[in-house]
Design a binder for these strands. Structure first.
Length: 483
RNA sequence: GGGUUGGUAGCUCAAUGGUAGAGCAGUGCCCUUUUAAGGCAUUGGUUCUGGGUUCGAGUCCCAGCCAACCCA
């Protein structure tokens, strides 16, 4: 939909582009030697030091003969000073055709302005990229959520808060890898295209391999392949990458999302809970600067504070249910549904009895739990891949970690009995034999060590640690309907 | 899938059914240390799309598209 007539704003930028070319300057430059990122240049700054920097012009303060500009990248901004006497009349004429948004490289020397700001006095500059479209409002940045999500680069250029969230996400992911590697876990990669989408209960995306004439699924979880690696003798492994689920999009759901799964041979769910507790506290310490995480609204008012101070609470699923409805387990299934209706809980979608209980759990426990809580001894129907409890076979040896009203991480004592595992998977698949991963079951028959396993939804973890209210705010490019 | 709210200049936002406006950005002029620079002047609109009601629609009604929030 390129209109033949450019708006005045765009036409002027094209004219400047032509003017730069007419002056014999390439408006789209090539490589440029710098003293590093803007942050690195700032670190090297000293008065009189020779400095080279490159970045985008994000502000322009025109004093006539003196020109002050901000040069920025995602690492920071630095002020530069241009004067016709320093760069020559010819270059100054080229400079007149630059705009906010353009990339330039500069060389000069450091000096401190009267107001005390470290600044580069430019001796010469090079045009590196002319921008043909204007940037958003310099003060308000991008407010329109649609632009923020569809044109994330504009959000990143103009909104410092957004940039900070993504930099935090990057540090969190790096620290998770460092934390696990420091403890002897190794990162592995397993298939994202699978013939059977196993390891979780979710609708998969379907694709097709032409040469093999084979339907494939994008993975909904890496679990069954990671367990094959336990069988193969790797005792401490993790995978931190994308999963895909063909389900609704919401504040908490994106069709592709990042998941950490880690397996530790000869450990159990309690040991995994310790590991996760230690890891998330390590992240809060190193990335957020403390155990109290404040969530704020648009005006900057604190809406809630999540306290990650150890030790974290641990409680049994059934005890938590009794905590909100004391006589729950004395009621008949019919009376339970009736009680739900009285409490305003809609359980009409729930078929099985355990689903009714789970609905109560989600609404009355999970959504109201802000500080960390390990929920243990969950009903076995909810978790087909975990070991049954030795004393009570109706529950499994798992934890579900709830923080910020959301399930952040499940951890299991993994089921390693191939016969029981086959039964559970058969029950889960509801008799659809083709959905049964026989290759995985065969691997188990060769013997899988008892192991602890965890999963952590990285996007939700980042939301919790950064105070983001929507998953879209922690994904560079959340899924949107095409315009 | 259902409900609510929204979509106006490049951006941020105004505008009882009665001449579509401001700030920033842009353009021109002034200014040799500014930093949301300042001063003076000024350009810029298919009001998301398509219908309808009306003497008259950015505004009311219907349908659609996109988004945000809530519910399922």
């Amino acid at each position: 939909m390129e209109s033949t007539e450019l708006s005045e704003l765009l036409a002027i930028r094209r004219q400047k582009l032509d003017a730069i070319r007419a002056a014999g300057v390439d408006p789209f430059g090539r490589g440029y030697e710098t003293d590093g990122t803007i942050a690195e240049v700032r670190a090297k700054f000293s008065e009189g030091a020779a400095l080279r920097a490159a970045g985008r012009i994000t502000a322009h303060r025109d004093m006539g003969k003196s020109q002050f500009l901000d040069l920025s990248d995602a690492t920071g901004r630095i002020q530069i000073f241009l004067h016709a006497k320093e760069i020559g009349e010819e270059a100054f004429a080229v400079f007149k055709n630059l705009d906010i948004g353009d990339f330039i490289g500069v060389e000069g020397e450091g000096f401190v302005t009267r107001t005390g700001e470290n600044t580069i006095r430019v001796k010469s500059f090079t045009v590196l990229a002319k921008s043909l479209k204007p940037l958003p409002d310099k003060w308000h940045g991008v407010q329109d959520t649609e632009i923020k999500y569809r044109q994330r680069y504009l959000d990143l250029i103009s909104n410092g808060d957004s940039r900070e969230v993504f930099l935090k996400r990057i540090r969190i992911v790096r620290e998770i890898r460092r934390f696990l590697e420091d403890r002897g876990f190794i990162e592995v990669e397993t298939p994202m295209m699978q013939t059977i989408a196993g390891g979780a209960a979710a609708e998969p995306f379907k694709t097709h391999h032409n040469a093999l004439g084979l339907d494939l699924y994008l993975r909904i979880a890496p679990e069954l392949y990671l367990k094959r690696l336990l069988v193969g003798g790797f005792p401490k492994i993790f995978e931190l990458n994308r999963n895909f689920r063909n389900e609704g999009i919401s504040r908490r759901h994106n069709p592709e999302f990042t998941m950490l799964e880690a397996y530790w041979a000869f450990a159990d769910f309690e040991k995994m809970a310790d590991l996760v507790e230690e890891m998330i506290c390590h992240l809060a310490e190193t990335v957020c600067g403390g155990m109290k995480i404040e969530h704020k609204d648009a005006d900057g008012n604190v809406t809630k504070t999540i306290d990650l101070t150890r030790p974290w609470k641990r409680a049994r699923y059934a005890d938590l249910i009794r905590g909100v409805i004391p006589d729950w387990y004395d009621l008949t299934p019919q009376l339970r549904r009736q009680r739900c209706a009285e409490l305003g809980l809609d359980v009409s979608q729930c078929v099985a009895d355990y689903e009714v209980t789970q609905h109560v759990f989600e609404k009355l426990v999970e959504e109201k739990t802000m500080d960390p809580l390990f929920v243990t001894h969950c009903p076995k129907e909810l978790v087909p891949l975990a070991k049954q409890n030795a004393e009570d076979p109706s529950v499994v040896d798992v934890y579900e970690l709830v923080i910020n009203g959301q399930e952040i991480s499940p951890g299991y004592s993994e089921l390693n009995d191939p016969i029981v595992q086959r039964q559970r998977l058969e029950e889960q698949s509801g008799g659809e034999v083709q959905k049964l991963d026989n290759d995985f079951l065969e691997a188990l028959e060769h013997g899988m060590p008892p192991a602890g396993g965890i999963g952590i939804g990285i996007d939700r973890l980042v939301m919790m640690l950064t105070g983001a209210e929507s998953i879209r705010d922690v994904l560079f490019f959340p899924h949107m309907k095409p315009r």
